[in-house]
Amino acid sequence: MLEFDRVSVGYKDLTVIHDVSFRVGEGEVVSLVGSNGAGKSTILRAIAGLLTPSRGEIRLRGQAIHRTPAYEIVKRRVAMVPEGRQLFGRLSVWDNLQMGAYTLRSKREIAESLKEVLALFPILEDRRDQRAETLSGGEQQQLAIARGLMSRPELLLLDEPSLGIMPKLVTEIFRTIREISKKGITVLLVEQNVFEALEVADRAYVLQTGRIVLEGPGAELQRSDLVRHAYLGSSGLAEAAGEEARP
């Protein structure tokens, strides 16, 4: 579905991503993991049309999109949930959802989309008239993902969905990502929470200082020495697994 082909991209004179290639297949959940500053969000911003690569090509279903403006990318059924939620804080939950449906053309489509999204996040129905800024962190993240889904995307770009969320709710967010994937939506996930990101992913790429250093199925990467030492700590995986096992 998505091919990131030998892309270099950055901000003005600063190249953050160097000659990076990866692909995301139809219906897959692919995670990009790495530490802060590795360039993960830069990749998502380039796919969303907010940054233009200096080299390489980004192709969506075989068509080059690396020079397409952001507001056109959404029409190609790609939605981005930006880092830090970035909701319209002074607008209500309902208005934020409506904003996500900008590219839909008919009332019927919007109503259907709303129904599907509320089935996934029923709490938002109760909060519909509340200002987005008054929601808890977890609810805000749910709203941000729901707003992204309102445009009925085929590819969902999630930038650090667990950032600033209490651990209990992080598990809930990743459960939702699995549910989204079951609906046939392809997910490209960028995360610092490496354990959860690899757990949910069909495949994953490890990014270090703008370059991919490791790739493979999520479960396989969880066992790799590099990931265990660099991101999970020597006993991190065992601890994390222990946490999971506890009721």
């Binding site: 507001y71 990318i73 930006p82 002074r90 900008y102």
Partner: peptide, 21 residues
Amino acid sequence: GFYFRAIKESHELAMVLGISF
């Protein structure tokens, strides 16, 4: 007017949502 305010609040976010600023 709704989209005007969206653009005012966050230009980049409005673009990501597909709003032609």
